[in-house]
Design a binder for these strands. Structure first.
Lengths: 163, 163
DNA sequence: ATGTATGCAAACCATTTGCAATGAC
DNA sequence: GTCATTGCAAATGGTTTGCATACAT
């Protein structure tokens, strides 16, 4: 789905949520949602702040945190904690589609579509729990790091034989 | 598996790892591993520190962090980031068995055994990535919170009809 | 007019870092 | 004796908090 299309859909839902909860329709909330929709993948507060610098629109960091909290509560965003310190966020409608591959050597995160797998997991039948959505992290070694390791291992072998 | 049995197994593996990497066999590293094995589930640094208080054995926080880092690198521990600020750790051999149910209302984390599902996910076939293990978080509403919500909703309805 | 939301600055706190002392090899 | 590891204290940095101001209702 296109970013602007996603925004249009979520804008309506946000308006509905704000009305339901009797909150206030502030310009900030909508422009933050809009910028979030422009990310193709997960992002953190720092990246969002940069984005606002680029479009020359000022929002305080406190408001970014407040609004993100609101969007998480409302179920628009989900949170991730990868290797980096900062919390990463992702639109829930994207997170419902993607699983994450995390390289334990370099920390790189790659997203892969596997709707069937995700559905399987989210539809898990458990007593005393009503599932809504799920996140899947598969840890392993990316091809770049694997290549580096093999090269290193080869060099070590050479060293040994040279002795 | 019993905690002491797990420790015996991991103790040997740690010795092997230390030898391979040409590190040093310090008392601290082994007792930290031992205490970690005594947790039945995930824990954070603070809980580990408390545990050392209880057994009246002093280890500095820096060493706790250093050793945990070592154990993560060695593949004995995996990390979780739940709602609380601090990073949680879990023995990988436990994490390979359990998935996590997280209540989005109260933050409670419940572990469920589903070996088949976990295997399914970890054996995912992807190009340019060699999977090792996976974590699955299913978000939803726990029965306690669901009950509270229903009660609240019922009360609201009563209020409306009374007006 | 009222009270929520924003902006700012200070506080918080888990984690990291630098460095001297210790002790495994 | 050498150098990795420990312990301590200070620094770091993402996030939270308190409060005055702005503004949606």
């Amino acid at each position: 789905m296109e970013s602007s299309k996603i925004y249009t859909e979520l804008e309506a839902k946000l308006t509905q949520y704000i009305a339901e909860k009797k909150l206030r329709k502030t310009e900030e909330r909508y422009i933050i949602l809009k910028q979030i929709c422009s990310f193709s993948s997960h992002f953190d507060i720092c990246m969002l702040e940069q984005r606002f610098n680029e479009i020359n629109y000022f929002v305080s960091r406190a408001t970014l945190y407040n609004t993100i909290e609101l969007l998480v509560k409302a179920g628009f965003l989900i949170t991730h904690q990868f290797a980096s310190k900062s919390t990463h966020y992702e639109l829930r409608i994207l997170a419902e589609i993607y699983s994450h591959l995390i390289c334990t050597a370099c920390g790189a995160v790659r997203e892969v579509r596997d709707v069937a797998l995700k559905k399987n997991v989210s539809n898990i039948k458990i007593t005393r729990f009503t599932p809504a959505f799920s996140t899947i992290y598969v840890y392993g070694i990316c091809s770049k790091c694997k290549y580096k390791m093999q090269k290193k291992s080869n060099n070590n072998n050479k060293d040994i034989t040279r002795k």
